[in-house]
């Protein structure tokens, strides 16, 4: 099933499928948010945003507006 990263439920996994390079900063790529990598949504901040991810052996936090741009495959 295809969805976007911001819609992932807490404690679920997805595989990063694709995104529009123009809308995603280089830093996110360098942190390891690359197509094919597994991503886990660990926590959502109290007011629903930002979200807390585990990807590429890294714990990181991004805002939903950015997560929206990232397509993920969920089993």
């Amino acid at each position: 099933m295809n969805t976007t990263l911001d819609l992932l439920e807490k404690n679920t996994k997805g595989i990063i499928a694709d995104y529009d390079m123009q809308k995603v900063p280089l830093k996110l790529l360098e942190m390891g948010c690359l197509p094919g990598n597994e991503v886990v949504l660990l926590e959502v901040a109290p007011l629903g945003d930002p979200i807390y991810l585990y990807v590429n052996d890294t714990h990181l936090s991004i805002r939903k507006e950015l997560a929206k741009e990232i397509l993920v495959n969920v089993e």
């Binding site: 809308k23 900063p25 830093k27 996110l28 942190m31 930002p50 807390y52 890294t58 714990h59 990181l60 936090s61 991004i62 805002r63 950015l66």
Partner: peptide, 10 residues
Amino acid sequence: KKSYFVIEMP
């Protein structure tokens, strides 16, 4: 510039 927010949680 468009805002973005990517931080590591060490």
